[in-house]
Design a protein around this nucleic acid. Structure first.
Lengths: 109, 109
DNA sequence: CTGGAATATTACTCTTTGGTTGTGAGGTAA
DNA sequence: TTACCTCACAACCAAAGAGTAATATTCCAG
């Protein structure tokens, strides 16, 4: 498969990567991955140390780009990561990052 | 493999995704992928329509996060994408984006 | 050595965006 | 109804970043 990165796609792709390029949102994603069940917004805010309003904005961003699913239930809203995309991206990037760290570690011996 | 997103990694990962979350840098990456050989900075600037200084900054960013290789040769500097990471990321994300588009297309019929 | 070409860097502007505070809209329970 | 809880949204501030213009720096040709 060619990369097929058309002009029309670039806007979408920048949105996705822009959403992933923030520490708070990555921490939210991590807590959602660690939890076995969907988490309420309050639980996410408490686990990550974010304020309520801040967590709301970041979760809305993650939902907008399609990384997280949103499921209202009664008064509270539950969020869960959309697998396997998130897991795949994590594996890919974590592998790359650890490779780079190992390489720069070997470089200074 | 678990996602293994440690606190120490998050800074690195945000750097990587932050680099990918910009249209100009994605266009640079695309021209580097389309070209079969390493491209000089001037060639990249011309192909993407970026100014010289701007292309220099974006290419430096891509090199810093390890997505692009930099190879000076005489007076000019040649850049090439680091495969297969870039190709893998493109396949993953492009697939996800097209899936979303297809899904929203089916949704309004 | 001199002129020119390719890249890096600095200073500046302007837009974007993360974070906070305050408020309002639903939903639930007494 | 009232009280309360969960979340969304607006306005605002501050920091980060994309873009430009001008100025080095380095290298090669003549």
């Amino acid at each position: 498969m060619k990369h097929g990165l058309t002009d029309a796609m670039i806007e979408q792709v920048t949105g996705l990567f822009g959403a992933l390029g923030d520490g708070s949102r990555l921490r939210i994603l991590r807590t959602l991955l660690d939890a076995k069940e969907p988490q309420s917004q309050g639980a996410v805010a408490e686990a990550t140390g974010l304020s309520q309003a801040n967590a709301s904005k970041h979760l809305a961003c993650l939902v907008r780009v399609g990384l997280v699913a949103r499921e209202p239930e009664g008064n509270t809203v539950y969020f869960s990561p959309i697998l396997p995309l998130v897991a795949n991206i994590c594996n890919l990037v974590c592998g790359h990052v650890t490779d780079r760290v190992k390489k720069s570690y070997r470089a200074l011996r």
